[in-house]
Nucleic acid binder design. Structure first.
Length: 320
DNA sequence: AAACAGTGCAACCGCTCTGAC
DNA sequence: TGTCAGAGCGGTTGCACTGTT
């Protein structure tokens, strides 16, 4: 289409609104109601363009607007809604009474987005960012046990393994290292998508190193490892931390659900009855189960499969 | 104490889309 | 069918505030 901007007139005021302007705008809207933004400034005695008046009203002066910090529930809602709706701020705002799309957008960009990135979660896809895993420290560890890696690789999706290795200083180092030790075979890499049975990975590690069994006597995993896996510190969580604790939940045993990003992703934990009911109750899951478009089903399924990484991967820290 | 850098937020810009006329 | 106002969005800017050097 292409229209000339509404604010191209000379002499119209820009910048922060004064209390006097606010009063004029509120008084006019109280009498005449919102709308007719093009003629409103003139009738209200404002040297502003209509769009500026509309934005000021919708983003700041509306009586139903809630000011102040976002609550824990609001922050959690924003994250979950964003995982479902994307950058549709108005749609998100419609589900958060008293909050405007602009306010939510700003809050997302200045707080939530940064925190997601800091915790290794892609704010666009809400997926864990495997490229941020600090595997270089793992791979350079003198305690690296290649026989464990051999067992791991039979369980890991080869693509995942490839992705993991991409973070090493020399991206091919791990693959080369493994291949040299005949730890990877080309058939696996090229043709096979291993089927991972719940708890298989964890059991294997525990068999190999019984001392690694989840045990209350064990100290918490190193902070860096927790953060790299999208897990927040467990001590004295702040409101924001609590959000992300939910965002990256743990199972009954206290081990991480690496991909507990949104409700739809919780469905990965089908081995644990604890999560399944809650999964079914989520909008995306119920859409999937009760019908919905093919796109929705595909999206739902692809998200289930996309992050199928053994939950006990974080225990690498224990046995190295 | 002053300068500087980083952060948060309100507001703006430019554009597209939608629906009414 | 075309035009226009309003709504929505992503990106950006400007400024106040705070923390650091």
């Amino acid at each position: 289409m292409g229209r000339s901007p509404c604010c191209d007139k000379e002499g119209l005021k820009k910048g922060p609104w004064t209390s006097e302007e606010d009063t004029k705008l509120v008084r006019y809207i109280q009498i005449h109601g919102p709308g007719n933004w093009r003629i409103l400034p003139k009738h209200a005695g404002l040297e502003r363009c209509g769009k500026s008046c509309r934005l000021r009203w919708t983003n700041y002066l509306r009586p139903d607007i809630k000011r102040g910090r976002f609550s824990f529930e609001e922050e959690e809602s924003i994250i979950q809604l964003h995982s479902l709706l994307g950058n549709k701020w108005s749609a998100i705002a419609a589900r958060l009474p008293g909050r405007t799309d602009n306010e939510i957008k700003n809050y997302w960009n200045t707080h939530i987005r940064k925190r997601l990135l800091r915790n290794g979660i892609d704010p666009v896809t809400h997926a864990p960012r495997l490229d941020l895993l600090d595997l270089s420290s793992i791979l350079t560890s003198p305690h690296l046990n290649l026989s464990n890696l051999l067992r791991l690789q039979t369980l890991l999706n080869p693509l995942t393994l490839t992705l993991l290795s991409s973070n090493v200083e020399n991206p091919n180092m791990l693959l080369q290292k493994l291949q040299e030790n005949q730890l990877l075979d080309s058939h696996n890499l090229n043709n096979q998508t291993p089927t991972f049975q719940p708890n298989q990975f964890e059991n294997l590690i525990n068999q190999q190193n019984p001392s690694n069994l989840a045990d209350s006597s064990l100290p918490n995993p190193p902070q860096s490892a927790q953060n790299n896996l999208g897990q927040l510190p467990t001590t004295s969580p702040s409101t924001s931390d609590q959000v992300f604790q939910n965002y990256c939940p743990t199972n009954e045993n206290g081990s991480n659900f690496f991909y507990g990003v949104s409700d739809r992703m919780k469905a990965v934990d089908l081995s644990e009855n604890s999560s399944f009911d809650s999964v079914i109750s989520t909008p995306s899951a119920s859409t999937f189960i009760n019908g919905g478009t093919e796109d929705e089903k595909e999206s739902f399924c692809s998200n289930l499969l996309r992050f199928e990484i053994p939950e006990s991967l974080d225990q690498l820290d224990y046995f190295m």
